[in-house]
Amino acid sequence: MNIGRHLAGRSAAGGRTAGRRFAAAVASGDAGLVALIIGAALLPLVLANGYYYDIVMRIGLSAVVAIGLNLFIGYAGQISLGHAGFFAIGAYASAILTSRYHLPGIVALAIGAAAAGLVAFIVARPILRLSGHYLAMATLGLGIIISIVINREVAITGGPDGIAVPAFRLFGWRLHGLQNWYWIVAALLVVTVWLSLNLMRSAFGRGLRALADSETAAATAGLDTAGMKARIFVLSAVIAAVAGSVFAHAEGFITPDEAGFLRSVEFVTMVVVGGQASTFGAVLGAAILTLLPQFLAGFQQWHDFLFGIILVSTMIFLPRGLVPTLGLRLGWLRAATALPERGGVP
């Protein structure tokens, strides 16, 4: 058995070509990261006007949230139906602290991230004792409570009408214009992807996957499962809050819709449609879920109906999500073409 595996490993290594090495790099995510950087650098060449910049920026920030959420849902095997709440904590912290208290943007962002992290940390232990449906319900409840507070505290948050967000100031310098924000969002996305890829290669990341497979088995093997779940929950909340802060400044206006239940659902859907436990899947999911309503806008009043049908069909026919499904297909193709080649290796 061992010898067989050893031989198989040797023949595979012997047949490794440049193309295969590239495929392996793609699989590990490094090439994907390089492609993302190149793509982000070149994209402004084809973005004709502010409308496109706006869409691309929304994709980028949703992708950041989805990557964070994927750590919690995809890798750690948990579920959250309340992450829009954390996104909104970041967005509203930035909006309120910079407009009412004239704090510098970066300070407001840090406070928002800390606040979201603190809320996540406080609820983490009791909430994460739950699993499955019960965890879904508890996170749903948490998200809705945040959204109700934002809607009702009109004197502070502006209530259902929303609130205007001043330009981002740093040492007397004001950042404005969607083109400039594009680079900030692109940098944030690249850093988040890099963070996610590295985290999953670390011992902590392997522990998370073990936990997703079987929490009881992971705990038996000596992992502090409760602590790990809490840490990844807090991390994903902080990432969502940072994206929320950037979103608030870049858009210049936010409403409580950003905190709503349907927005939370959207974030989870991005993770699931792109493919759970896939960093680039989360990015792809964010792109699809942001672009789809734009394409469907042409169908006018049928837009929601079609969106629902597409969502349900995707989940029924590609339950593993797009990236893992495509990965399987490609893997199958590679295996099929690799076989004769492997036979030829001496």
């Binding site: 139906l81 859907t269 699931v272 969502l311």
Partner: peptide, 11 residues
């Protein structure tokens, strides 16, 4: 579970 939740939400 997550897929099933998304499906009922999609419905």
């Amino acid at each position: 579970l997550t897929t099933l939740i998304i499906i009922t939400l999609g419905v």
